[in-house]
Design a protein around this nucleic acid. Structure first.
Lengths: 239, 239
DNA sequence: GATGTTCAGTACCATAATGTACCGGCAAGC
DNA sequence: GCTTGCCGGTACATTATGGTACTGAACATC
């Protein structure tokens, strides 16, 4: 069962629940750029990222704008938790990796019968809610430099190790700014010795320093996740 | 029972559910600027606005930034729906009016026993989710003029009549910009014959024109509410 | 080893919004 | 009727970011 422990939501479940889920969960590889579903699509699968990072974007004319990132701390498939079938947003793989997957139909059945599962998922919904809410004001008032630092921190939290693949171009799309703008902001962080960039590979060098130049939104949201997902009360007597 | 029909969520409930709720609901006056709860506060009451408008804001240093507005199409108390007790955001009355209120404890009991109530509330959560997600990208990419128009349209949808009380100052706080900026944007809309302003009293003159200068976000979110809240399938044989 | 592509770095001007300040009109209270 | 405070209108210099475009380095392919 330990395989699923990488995902914080699954880890928060009591062993009886995770045992039931495990019968239907399959671990698959979710490759970079794969689309899970888009607006209007039926949410037919539930994904629990293990070491992959998923971006959720909202339509914006012909383009997209990032609303939130999801990784090992969460899941993709909230519409199913809400009892609806259709996605209003687009979900795609930002950084490839493994995810535990099951069908939405089966998940719906389990939600109905498993109180603990429902509780954990709804607490997660509240955390996600807070994350997105904070992003509304963050995008509006914080500088590119601050938001850039925040995004890198959030992604760092969701991948194993200190290095991951991400071009300036991709980061620009996520932050909703020009590629050239990211080059300036990231170059700034690099000269300050906080990160290192090399042809699409970014390395987090000084995490604490990064947190200092990031806006308060990072810590605020991280703390909410700790409270709502990390301490669900369902995790059994861990050290 | 018809008193509660002003609120779309309550209206969407089957008569058995609304009858049970009605035993605990009380209609109160929620005066402008009253705070319902703030971050860290316990969510002890559930509010269904009838003709009032509530603002939900996230902390931003010493100040606040608006995340969403809630009116007759929704409710205040999603943390309770999510099974959590503490609010992560601040909720206060933007435009005073009446609201139907009940205790969170009683609401929790009803949620447990009433499937239809739970269904409607979760569908609402999804709609709210979409609204906030759209605002994330809206705040980032759309001009002050567009967002100003969007905000006025959303508020117009939530109040009776074409006129409501709102100073430039308050609107500036909501949009997260300077008061002077709102004066320019609103003056612009006024000269275009779309609205009329007079010492804190705003009148919507040309709703359709306003929708034209607003960003797509307005219609997109309005349609999601129609789909998720307006057509819950629980509304009985209305015309 | 030659070639094409991807990616980061940089520069330029245009523009939306900021910070700050001042002014004048309307309204309420004494 | 006068004062005081609130509210909207306007101005001006400053800054962050957008739009666009060009460059050279690193890498992949053949």
């Amino acid at each position: 069962m330990d395989t699923y422990d990488e995902n914080l939501l699954l880890r928060a479940l009591p062993s009886a629940s995770i045992k039931r889920l495990a019968e239907d969960l399959v671990i698959i590889n979710t490759p970079t750029h794969a689309e899970l579903y888009g607006p209007g699509d039926m949410v037919n699968r539930i994904y629990f990222p293990l070491d992959s990072v998923i971006s959720m974007t909202a339509p914006l004319g012909a383009t997209q704008g990032e609303v939130a990132t999801v990784g090992q701390e969460g899941m993709i498939g909230l519409p199913t938790v809400f009892g609806t079938e259709m996605a209003n947003m687009r979900f795609f793989v930002q950084i490839g990796g493994r995810s535990a997957v099951m069908t939405a139909d089966r998940f719906t059945e389990l939600l109905r019968s498993d109180d603990a599962l429902r509780t954990v998922m709804l607490r997660y919904a509240h955390a996600m809610f807070t994350q997105i809410g904070q992003s509304v004001v963050c995008n509006q008032r914080h500088s590119l430099r601050q938001r850039c630092a925040r995004w890198l921190l959030m992604t760092h939290d969701r991948v194993p190790g200190d290095q991951f693949h991400l071009t300036h171009e991709a980061l620009a799309v996520m932050l909703g700014v020009r590629r050239a703008g990211v080059t300036v902001a990231a170059g700034n962080l690099q000269r300050a010795g906080l990160i290192r960039y090399r042809r699409g590979e970014i390395t987090i060098v000084d995490r604490e320093g990064l947190e200092k130049v990031s806006c308060e939104c990072y810590r605020l949201v991280a703390d909410v996740y700790d409270r709502l997902v990390g301490q669900t009360g369902y995790k059994e007597s861990a050290a």
